[in-house]
Each structure stands twice: as structure tokens, then as C-alpha cells.
Design a protein around this nucleic acid. Structure first.
Lengths: 356, 356
DNA sequence: CTGAAAGCGCTAACAA
DNA sequence: TTGTTAGCGCTTTCAG
């Protein structure tokens, strides 16, 4: 297991001395290894070695150099380093929609894992557009050491093309040949079906998400399969936009379908649906049960609180980052191209016994 | 008004051709201006000029060069460009807590404004720690053209020290000498006080936020002042952590205080408070009214839905980014060091006539 | 309008 | 162990 810190940067805190800049010392915070070298009485290259190749320099001079560096308040210039090495110590994270709370935890997990390893995270959003997504990805590619694609909308081939240039990991989607971090939906869905069945539901609906979304397809398919297995009729409605608004718009068709429970593509859709249902005077869960996917922030704030299949969002973020870094380190050989993290049903108040 | 795009980058889309890399063309996506120059039959420096100094090259050769660039699928190397120019076309955004939904919109506003101007946004989180915050800020400083500090916790002097190095804007806090983007709380607070007064409340509480938070102090102070003005007694409770948990923990002291309404430091605190109150069997708003600040995602999902003083979060994000870019462009001369954006009261269901 | 040449700050052979 | 010497890819004087 290689050490992930991109380089043993000299990381003492700066005490940015003078606001007005006393003419004596460095003007614009740009002290270079040349300055350090001069102070320490060595060659610049020796400074470079001392600071990031532990052991390749005599203990005595290393100490002298480090001292010089601190008194001068030296810090590497990441850009200058990136040029000869080709490594920037920054990784990209591309999400489809900032507005969607699912990403909060993914971003958070990735960010904390990144800074823990000495990497910087750059964030971009594709606004649910596959073309904009590819554009952004290409833009980021020029400056990152690796890229995380969270719930991407672009075609598999585009993703593979990106992965051919630099390390790439994908979250919430399975792409052959690319390291994918996905929830293991099986466990959560099985629980959900069992839960509904035990409450007496016999006919339920799945409210499908966007066609371009791999997750949407996956959730629908696995749910359908599990329902069949459990001898539960499951009709498919939608697709709807993966938003509160999308959920609201589907209320009518849900009512007409006559099911006793509905599994929404995600929590946002479920929340929207519940809102619209409430406004129409339909009681949840007495008249109809509602479940979501993800367990986002807010799922336990609704009334009734939302029963949902919880995705390990933060873990996915951390995991994808960690995997990405090992990809970056080892080159390209991945031992296991697929990481699955368990989901689980969180039972709250939006599900209840099937209506008469 | 200068054009903000850092450089007229050559931005055609890549169609990343070969996954296996046919040996003929560029191995690792690294075609340089030298390649372009050779193909176009000019000097590399001319390529550089043609691509980013409009008009400084003859129309004919420029066309030839652009053609060469496209057929070669050339893209600038941001790091290489950053070295001589000292500008990276990336800006940093440092938030105190990803978990707090207030930042969603701030981030979103900043991100969209940034990419619209051709800048890349890097995101970092200080986890509510002032030391970690300064560390991160210093780290980012080495690679960004400017930095946005959202709701920073560090002392004013540290912020000014940062601002002395590179352009800095501050969101949700007023720092003398540094461009600050803050909500104009006055309007929203005035509305809130009027609202409460008209509902018959005479004695209310302010549940204060973290001591280090400028906003917390500001909200408390302005509210107190306004209450005095309106002859409304306002006691101060707390401080509490700016989280749901913080709100829950304060329920007891609220009950003991005997007020008929409470203004929480922010929506998260208000939500936590309402949850705890509900569990204790206390009816909101019949027995006590609750208001928050911000109007985050989720404020309209609670039951009852939350009355709150809405901050223009997205606008703050956009604004801070835009201001930062003009700072970057003009050097350091700011015409107006303070931007205030109006807040406004959003009345929902958590406020009602004063009890008893 | 275009070419030649120097250099941004750092790293990485290659010598010594 | 350390110094010397080239670059990384781009911009930018300075000449022509």
C-alpha cells in the first residue's frame, strides 16, 4: 500500500507577516526553492530532494534546509511542481445536480477523504445534461489527476474514453471496465418488499426516474424482480424528473392506478408525491403508502416522515475517492472493478397497512 | 468592464478517439503548441498569440493555426499557463460545514457563476474549526486566483492577512477592508418582529448561535434592537450549536423561559427545536411560535412548515464570485467594500397567535 | 505581423 | 550525498 500523500509538502502554517509588505522580504508571497537554497547554502535541487524525497539527503543538510524553509516561510508552488511531474494533486468530482441533497454526503465524503490524503477536490455540476457533463469532464481532465463521476448521465462509451486518459471512478452506476462504486440495492429492496408484503400490500407501483439514469433503471428492475419473487404485483409508472416537482406531477397517475403503495425513484420524488397527495386530502399512509430511495437530509422532516431505502452516500464518496487514489498510484491495474455498499430499509411513518 | 474569461481558451469538444491509442498520434492527450506550430508552419509563440490575443496576428495565419489546433485536438495545459502568468483560473470557496444546507445554494451560485466565466471552483470545508479553516485557506491560496470565505470562523485579522496576499471576498460576515457580501437582515427582521407583534406576542426569545459566528451576533443584535424599538421584550438564550441537535438541546430552556415565541439562530436549530417540542407534546404554533433564519432546503418540509427569514443564498454565492473576479481583474481597487442583499420573511405555519 | 530567446518554479536524470 | 543541466508547456519581452 503506497503512501497516498502526493508529496511531503512543507506544511507549516504561514503567519502572513506584513500587510503593507516591508520591502526587504518576498513581495508577493513567492519565495522559491532558490531562496531557500541560498539561505541554506546548497543547490536548489537539493532543496527539492530534502523536502520531498525523505532519506535522499544527509540528515544534517536536510535539517538546515527545513530550517531555512520555515524562516523564509516557503511553500511549494503546486503549478510549478505539476509541470515536470504531470501530477497536480487535485481530483475532480462531477455531480449531476447540486440541488439534490443526495450529493451532499457524497461530496462531503469525497472532500474529507481527499484533504486527508493531501489532495484538493474540485467540484463541478452538469445540471442533468449529458452534453454539459462531458464538456465539464473534458475541461476538468486537463487539470486533475483523476476524476469521480457521480451519477453520470453520459453514455458508457464516453466514460470509458475518459477513463482511458486518466483514472476515473464512477459512483451510482456500473460501467464495464471502469471502477464503479454502487450501492448494493438488493438488501434494501428485499427488506422493502418484505415490509410492504407484511403490511398486506399486494399491488404496488414503481415511479421510475430519468431514462438516462442507470440507477433509475436498476432500482426499477431489481424491485420488479423482487416483487415477482414475492408474488407482489408491481406496475411501472413514469418516468418522472428526479425532483420534488417530478413527484408532485405524478400524483394524479398514482391515484388512478389504484395501488396501495408506491416506491418512488428517490426521496425527492417521494416527498413531492406526498405533498401533492396531502393537498388532495389523501392520507399517507392510511390510504396509500409511500417509500423513497436514498434517505437524504429532509427525509425525516416530512410529515409523515419518510420510509426509505438508505444509500450509504458518505461511504460512497469516501470510497470512490480512496479507490481513485489507488488507481492514481498504481497506474491502472484495479483488483476489483466494482465496490458495492449495502443499502438498508429505514422504516418511518409513510408506510402502513394496505388500505381496504 | 473587462472581459472576465481568463483567456480565450480553445474550447472545442474533444472526441477522445482511440481507447487503445493508435501509435501514430499523441500518446497521452498531450498535444502542445509546438505540435500545432509545426502543423501550421509557424512559431510556437505565434500559436500562443493567435489563440489568446485576438487581433495580434494576421487573420490568415490565425485561421490556419485554429484549424491546426482543432485537427490536432489541442487544449492548453492550465498548469503550464499558470507558471509564467501566475494565474490559474481557479478560485476557492471555503465553507464552514458542508452538512449545513445553507451552503448548498451559496455553492451552487458560486459554481455556476464561476464556470460561466471560465473559472474552476475548488471547494473546501473547515468543519466549524477556525484553525482548520486557516490551514485550508493557506493551502488553497497557493493555487487559486482568489478565495471566497463563506461564513468564516477565523478572526478578522487573519482574513485581512489573506486578503493582503490575493483577492478575497467574504460571505455572511462583515470584515473591514475586505469585500463583504452579507444579507441585509434589517428588512427581514423588521418584518418578523411586526409579524410576531401583530400575532399578539409580547415576550420572545432569541436562541443564539455559535460565539465565533459574526452572523449569530448580528442576528441577535439586530433582533434585540428591533424588538426594543417595537416594545417587545426579547430575552437571549444559548448559545447553541448551529445544528438540529443544538436546537433539540435547547427545548428545555425555551420551555422554562415562558416566552410565547422563539427566533432561532437558523433553520436547523429551529427544526431541531420543533422536533423536541413535538416529542414533548407541545404544540407549535398553538403553544409556542418558532421562526428560523435562512430558508434552507427542508424548511417547507417540516410539520408545521417553518416560518423563516429568508437569505438570498444563491445570490450571495453568485455575487461573491462576481465581485471576486472583478477584484482579480482590476487588481485591488474596490469601489464598494460591502454588498448587502435583502432578506425577507417567509410566513409559513410555525407561527401563530400568542398563547394564553 | 512574426520569429527568437529567456524564463516561470520545480523535478529528474546524470555526473561528480 | 550533492551539484549540474535540462527540460515540463506556455507567455512574453525584444528584434526583425
Amino acid at each position: 500500500m503506497p503512501d497516498h500523500r502526493p508529496l511531503d509538502d512543507h506544511d507549516d502554517d504561514a503567519s502572513p507577516s506584513d500587510l503593507q509588505g516591508s520591502p526587504g522580504d518576498s513581495e508577493a508571497g513567492s519565495v522559491t526553492i532558490y531562496d531557500v537554497a541560498r539561505l541554506a547554502g546548497v543547490n536548489p535541487s537539493t532543496v527539492s530532494r530534502a523536502l520531498n524525497k525523505p532519506g535522499r539527503v544527509s540528515a544534517a543538510t536536510e535539517k538546515r534546509i527545513r530550517a531555512a524553509a520555515t524562516t523564509l516561510n516557503y511553500h511549494v508552488n503546486p503549478m510549478a511542481r505539476a509541470l515536470p511531474t504531470g501530477r497536480t494533486a487535485i481530483v475532480g468530482l462531477l455531480v449531476s445536480d447540486f440541488t439534490n441533497p443526495v450529493f451532499f454526503d457524497v461530496v462531503r465524503g469525497a472532500e474529507s477523504a481527499a484533504t486527508a490524503r493531501g489532495y484538493t477536490l474540485v467540484l463541478a455540476e452538469s445540471e442533468e445534461s449529458d452534453t454539459k457533463e462531458l464538456e465539464h469532464a473534458n475541461r476538468l481532465m486537463r487539470m486533475v489527476d483523476g476524476l469521480i463521476l457521480a451519477t453520470p448521465r453520459m453514455p458508457d462509451d464516453d466514460i470509458r474514453a475518459l477513463a482511458a486518459q486518466k483514472p476515473v471512478t464512477v459512483v451510482n452506476r456500473r460501467v464495464d471496465g471502469v471502477l464503479s462504486v454502487v450501492p448494493d440495492l438488493g438488501s434494501g429492496i428485499a427488506d422493502a418488499v418484505r415490509h410492504l408484503r407484511s403490511l398486506g400490500h399486494r399491488r404496488i407501483a414503481y415511479l421510475a426516474g430519468p431514462e438516462l439514469s442507470w440507477m433509475a433503471g436498476q432500482r426499477g428492475e431489481l424491485l420488479a424482480r423482487r416483487c415477482e419473487w414475492a408474488q407482489l404485483e408491481c406496475i411501472r409508472l413514469g418516468p418522472v424528473a428526479p425532483t420534488i416537482e417530478g413527484g408532485r406531477r405524478s400524483a394524479q397517475s398514482i391515484r388512478e392506478s389504484g395501488v396501495t403503495a408506491v416506491v418512488a425513484y428517490n426521496d425527492l420524488v417521494a416527498i413531492g408525491l406526498m405533498q401533492e397527495l396531502a393537498e388532495a386530502g389523501i392520507d399517507v399512509p392510511a390510504e396509500i403508502s409511500v417509500l423513497g430511495f436514498d434517505d437524504i437530509f429532509g427525509a425525516n422532516l416530512t410529515s409523515p416522515t419518510l420510509t426509505t431505502i438508505k444509500s450509504p452516500l458518505r461511504e460512497e464518496g469516501e470510497f470512490s475517492l480512496t479507490s481513485l487514489l489507488s488507481l492514481i498510484d498504481v497506474g491502472s491495474a484495479v483488483d476489483r472493478p466494482l465496490f458495492e455498499i449495502e443499502t438498508q430499509l429505514v422504516v418511518r411513518a409513510s408506510t402502513g397497512p394496505a388500505a381496504g
